[in-house]
Amino acid sequence: MDDVTFDMVCFPSEDIVAREIEGELIIVPLVAGIGDTDDELYTLNETGKAIWSRLDGKRTLRAISEELATEFNAPLEEVGKDLSGLMNELIRRKMILVQSV
């Protein structure tokens, strides 16, 4: 799925609860149909966590990739690939919503 564009502004859905426990980011589905079964929880890897904390409904994905590239001293292209990979997963699972394109 390649519907993710860098003009998007995304924010966490109210149908999930994101919790940080002992340094782990845990996403708990609240509404039926987000997980494949009712008892699932999700964690994000380190890259995922860094991206998630910036999904504030204000910054575009482009702005987020630029910030991450600077902060982690990584090539913009690589950061962009990670970002769209994660966005695809989160949008498919209805864990984040897209505010504008």
Binding site: I21, E22, G23, E24, I27, G35, D36, D39, E40, L41, Y42, T43, L44, N45, T47, G48, I51, D82, G85, L86, E89, L90, R93
Partner: peptide, 15 residues
């Protein structure tokens, strides 16, 4: 590469 990991509560392993 997958960024999210799906787990049952009892499968959680914290650092």
């Amino acid at each position: 590469m997958t960024y999210t990991k799906k787990l049952k509560p009892h499968e959680f392993v914290f650092p």
